[in-house]
Amino acid sequence: MIDTFGLIKDRLDQSPHLLRLGRLFSETVLIEVDEDEYYLTFDKGHLVSVAQGPSRKTPWRFALRTDAEALAKFWEPLPEPGFHDIFGLVKIGRGRVDGDILSLVKNLRFFKEIMAIPRSQKEAAQ
């Protein structure tokens, strides 16, 4: 999982349009996958650190909580219905969004596109 977030970080750094979308986004986001916690810290759109939890000391702005199987399906090039979007995961009961949802919504295109990066990587590998 850390490798996948590393891939997101690298691809984000090489994507000027995503950095432009995220230029006002400097927050920490918690991604919880089953029992594992990952804290993604962004600075002006750059993903500057990925820290594995658990941590009770790391403040986060919003969280996406899901399970490994759902996330693997989300990252398929052509995901099944429901697994094709983070709100799809929520709708089918395989994900939850907590915290400052308005912060997420204000940066929704940015966050969705960076979360979907592994999808295109997988497609390119096939």
């Binding site: 090039p77 052509l78 979007d85 295109r109």
Partner: peptide, 19 residues
């Protein structure tokens, strides 16, 4: 304090098929 059109587009993308 936010662009409704950009947020709306990002939200409705949840309803667009990957195909």
């Amino acid at each position: 304090d936010a662009h409704g059109g950009e947020m709306g587009a990002a939200l409705v993308s949840a309803n667009i098929s990957p195909y």
